[in-house]
Design a protein around this nucleic acid. Structure first.
Length: 220
DNA sequence: CTCCCGATAT
DNA sequence: ATATCAGGAG
């Protein structure tokens, strides 16, 4: 795929989702970091249900390490993967207090060194909380990029990210990231992609293949 | 690569 | 019943 082909895709998804945004509820960089950490293999809707009460009980890093690990585990149990996540949160809060005065660092390299924070989470935090252009490749961005042909089927998430950074102007990285997520979450879905009503069908090999094979099933 | 894991959609 | 969900660590 070249930049001109990508430009067309960007214009179409901009028209479909003009105000795509971060759907994880948060009111500061620290809450955003916790929310993204919790969101692994879990819908943002479930995360928001939990953080609605979680963020009332735990305001600062000190609050998370003041309770027994088991108590924090129970407070986030519905998220899934809760034992790892609770452990990561306590370790992360300890590091924030020990090394960063209780604040979330703005440097991408420092973020990825935090427990439970990988490249994808760091990208979300720097772009959403600190205004640094970034394209976080989550399950939706990966799937959509590969279906549309912006990345190869066996590319790693890092390779997908690099490819998108080449194809998309830097000033549009963060916005594009959100629009690709919305496109993947609400339209080009994992299970029932709505190829039959997709404005990108004419440029999507995967979509044409699905329509031809009759795999596109519009059930609602 | 495997493991972690509950909630929801299909 | 199975697939999937804003992944990361060992």
């Amino acid at each position: 795929m070249n930049r001109k082909q990508m430009r067309h895709i960007l214009d179409v998804i901009a028209d479909m989702f003009p105000d795509a945004h971060c759907e994880l509820h948060h009111s500061n960089p620290f809450e955003l970091t916790i929310a993204v950490l919790l969101s692994a293999q879990c819908t943002d809707e479930t995360v928001n249900k939990v953080t609605a009460t979680l963020f009332q009980k735990y305001k600062r890093p000190e609050d998370y390490i003041a309770v027994p690990l088991e108590e924090l585990e129970q407070d986030i149990r519905r998220i899934g993967l809760y034992r790892n996540k609770a452990k990561h949160i306590q370790k992360l809060c300890q590091v924030l207090l020990d090394q960063y005065g209780g604040e979330v660092p703005q440097e991408h390299g420092k973020l990825t060194e935090l427990p439970g924070v990988g490249r994808k989470t760091a990208n979300v935090v720097v772009s959403n909380a600190f205004g640094v252009p970034a394209i976080a490749v989550d399950t939706h961005v990966e799937r959509v990029s590969k279906r549309l042909g912006a990345a190869k089927p066996d590319d790693t998430v890092l390779e997908v990210e690099k490819q998108l950074m080449k194809l998309v102007p830097q000033e549009e990285w963060t916005q594009t990231h959100h629009r690709l997520i919305f496109f993947g979450r609400y339209h080009c879905k994992a299970q029932n992609p709505q190829c039959d009503v997709c404005p990108l069908l004419d440029v999507c090999k995967e979509g044409k293949r699905r329509m031809k094979d009759g795999k596109n099933r519009k059930t609602s």
